[in-house]
Structure formats: C-alpha cells, structure tokens
Amino acid sequence: MSDNEAIRMLIAKSCLTLDDGDFSAYLALCAPDYAYRIKAWSPELRNDMIWLEHDRDGLAGLFATLPEHLQRSGRLSRHVSTATIEARENTEAYDVVSSLIVHHTDLDGRTQTLAVGRYKDTVAWVDGAILLSAREVALETRDLGIGLHVPL
C-alpha cells in the first residue's frame, strides 16, 4: 500500500471509530504525543477561538467520562474527503487536509447536517504504523444546536 493510501485509510478510520463510539480503536490510531484541537473563527470577535483542546490522555479522560453525561441522542456520521497530502521534508511526517461534513441522525432516523469544516492533520510513521500526531478541526459551523460532548 502506498503512503497516500495508508493515510487516506487512517483518516477514514478515525471517523468511523468515532462514529461507532469505539474510542479505544480511535485512540489506537493516535500517536502518544497526539494533540487534538477544535477551532473556529469568530466574525463577531474577528478572532480565532479554541473550543476544545486535549492531548491523548485528556481525550482518553473525556471518552471515559462520556457515559455519565447527558448527550444529544442519535448518531453522528463524519464524512471526509482528503484533498492534499504533503510530505514534510526530512521527516516521515505528512500534512494532510481533508474537508469534513458531520451529519446527525436522530432516534427516529432523520438526518441533518450538523457541521462542516476541515481536518488539518499531521500524520507520521511510528514503529511501522502510520498514526495521527495532530488534528485540528477547523469548523465553519458555529451553531451546533444543542451541542455535543464528543470530539468531531
């Protein structure tokens, strides 16, 4: 498998594992120094905002406490289309940009678009496996309705 193919599969898997709530499988795709962040631009403040920021342990803690929280019912479906994969010079890392659409399907089976944005990922080979070492979710959507606890 080419690196590009492996990277596309990694990113697609990161979506499916989150969609399925299979958080340990998601974390298995993340390097030990994984850095996760959700950002949005505020035209009101004319500034960037950080909406969620965690390292790998922080995310693991978030996932662990999730079952005790009141959550929007239904399921999320993350869909990505990877647009660019650029190798970083002299490293085994790549910068990858994908466009993202998240749909929400409620308990009655009705689906609506919940959010759009981009994944700006850094991926790298670690001990023979290609892993996510950083993800920034740059959201266009700023009204997420009744909101979420789960990373997108």
């Binding site: 909406w51 009141l70 929007r72 009744i146």
Partner: peptide
C-alpha cells in the same frame, strides 16, 4: 490558554455543562 480551557470545560460548545442544559 488556561482561561479558555476553564471556560470550555463547562461552557464551550463541546463543554460538559452547556450542551446538557440545552438538552
């Protein structure tokens, strides 16, 4: 950064309280 984190823990769109209040 720390204040943003403290804000987001409870009140951010991905925080632990406000999404529950909306429900």
């Amino acid at each position: 950064r720390v204040r943003q984190k403290h804000h987001n823990q409870y009140w951010g769109p991905f925080g632990r309280n406000v999404p529950e209040d909306m429900v």
